[in-house]
Design a protein around this nucleic acid. Sequence first.
DNA 1: ACCCTGACCCAGG
DNA 2: ACCTGGGCCAGGG
Length: 109
Amino acid sequence: MPERNFFADVYEVVRLIPVGRVTSYGAIAHYLGARHGARTVGYAMLAAHADASVPAHRVVNRLGHLTGRLHFATPTAMQEALEAEGVRVEEDKVVEFGKLFWEPGAELG
DNA sequence: ACCCTGACCCAGG
DNA sequence: ACCTGGGCCAGGG
C-alpha cells in the first residue's frame, strides 16, 4: 500500500469527527504521536482546503476558538457550517466546547 | 536542492 | 499577566 504521510493521517482522523462535535489541533497531534507538534496539524488543515471530504470546520484550537475561519471561502463559512450541525458559536468561539469536544480515538469502539 | 511560508501548544521567566 | 523559545511537515517557486 502507498506510503502514508502525516497529512494523510490527519485527514483520516478529521473524517472520523462526528457531526455536531469538534476537536482541536493539539488533540489530533497527540493522538497521532507526541513527536508531532500541533502546529503541523495546522499545516495539514491549511493544505486540506482542496479536499471537500475533510470536515475542516470541526477542528478548532485548544480554547475552542475558530482559528482557521479566515481560510474558508468566506470569513463566516466556518461558523455557518458548525451552526448547521447544531454547534453554537459566539465571538468566534465554540459554546460549551468542553461538552462538544471529541477525543480522537476515544469513541471508536 | 535551497528558501519561504503557514488553521498550534506548552513550558519557563 | 506578559513575552520568549522550542518542537514541527509538506508544497511551491
